[in-house]
């Protein structure tokens, strides 16, 4: 142990955790120190993540409805009744919930694909040497840094069937012959993907851009001497070298899109068409307009479980692998 760290340690050591947690005393000096450093972060996580999760799970097994809004703790314990109800495809709620899960998957995968393609293209362009690169980077970040409420409301106006600029533009270009309903009917999910991707692609861009910058120039030189053209250099050098950062991007975009509330809510509001009814929006609208908090919580837990399962599987099979190891 170096002198500096022991000095820092003694100042933190005044918190006598051992008195309250006997197990703590069994940890090594170094582990105790690590836990002390983690404490503020853990406390924060407990407060804003863990407690609401436990609370949500608790409510999901209670019959909290309009009668118990202010006294939720007095609601009867109903075991898995809420789950049975929301997952039963024969009930209207169950059928809609399953449908919303399907739409959520389309929303997540669609957004992932679109943000990745847009982000990668933008990152590759930014990685070229040209005048005004800095300005272009700032400009491309705007959709992400601008307040999403503003961006989404503007998109909502632009997508109006009668007055929106998008329809009038497409009409005048002759791409379509009559105005399209973007925010009503079956197109809604695609509009949602488009708009949400617009707000998210700069993040993907900046992550991939950072990844691109860490690829040594010499690999491209070696490849060009080896006879690789521009496409082959992308295919065999750039893309594989971006694998680690892409893995992170894919995971984050999938999960964040699954639980994204802002985009669907602001774009589609409290009365969304079925096609745009992604789970999180459906849960919110269902729970808060019908005062069905127990069932709403059950759906939330299902969504949470799906997201966690995905993340864990992903970690296990993809994220955990070493991208530079050998074949053996």
């Amino acid at each position: 142990m170096t002198r500096t760290s022991s000095r820092v340690r003694s100042s933190v050591a005044e918190i006598e955790i051992g008195r309250y947690l006997p197990l703590y005393n069994r940890l090594s000096d170094e582990q105790q120190y690590a836990y002390k450093l983690l404490l503020p972060g853990l406390a924060m996580m407990l407060l804003i993540h863990f407690i609401p999760i436990v609370w949500g799970v608790l409510i999901s097994v209670l019959g909290v409805d309009s009668g118990y809004v202010s006294q939720w703790y007095e609601a009867p314990f109903v075991w898995a009744e809420n789950y049975r109800f929301v997952l039963d495809p024969r009930t209207v709620v169950g059928e809609r919930f399953w449908y919303s899960l399907r739409q959520t998957v389309i929303f997540s995968v669609g957004t992932l694909l679109l943000t990745y393609v847009l982000g990668l293209t933008a990152a590759l362009l930014l990685n070229q040497r040209f005048k005004g690169r800095f300005a272009a980077r700032t400009l491309l970040l705007l959709p992400w840094v601008a307040p999403s409420v503003v961006t989404l409301l503007i998109w909502r106006m632009m997508f109006q069937q009668q007055s929106g600029i998008i329809n009038s533009l497409l009409l005048s270009l002759g791409v379509i012959s009559e105005p399209i309903y973007w925010l009503i009917g079956d197109n809604t999910i695609w509009t949602l993907i488009l708009v949400h991707s617009w707000t998210q692609f700069p993040l993907v861009m900046i992550m991939l851009y950072a990844g691109l910058q860490s690829i040594p120039e010499q690999l491209y030189e070696a490849a060009s001497i080896d006879g690789a053209g521009r496409w082959e250099q992308f295919r065999y050098i750039t893309f594989p070298q971006l694998k680690p950062v892409s893995a992170v991007v894919v995971l984050l975009m999938m999960l964040w899109t699954m639980i994204n509330f802002t985009s669907p809510y602001i774009l589609l509001g409290a009365q969304p068409p079925q096609s745009g009814q992604v789970s999180i929006l459906y849960i919110y609208n269902f729970a808060f307009s019908n005062y069905q908090f127990g069932r709403g919580a059950a759906m939330s837990v299902v969504l949470f479980a799906i997201a966690m399962a995905m993340a864990m599987l992903y970690y296990k099979y993809l994220f955990d692998q070493d991208f530079t190891e050998g074949d053996r």
Partner: peptide, 13 residues
């Protein structure tokens, strides 16, 4: 060409 730091492709065997 052989480079000073070899410039082997790290993701390939």
């Amino acid at each position: 060409m052989v480079f000073q730091n070899y410039a082997l492709y790290p993701h390939m065997t």
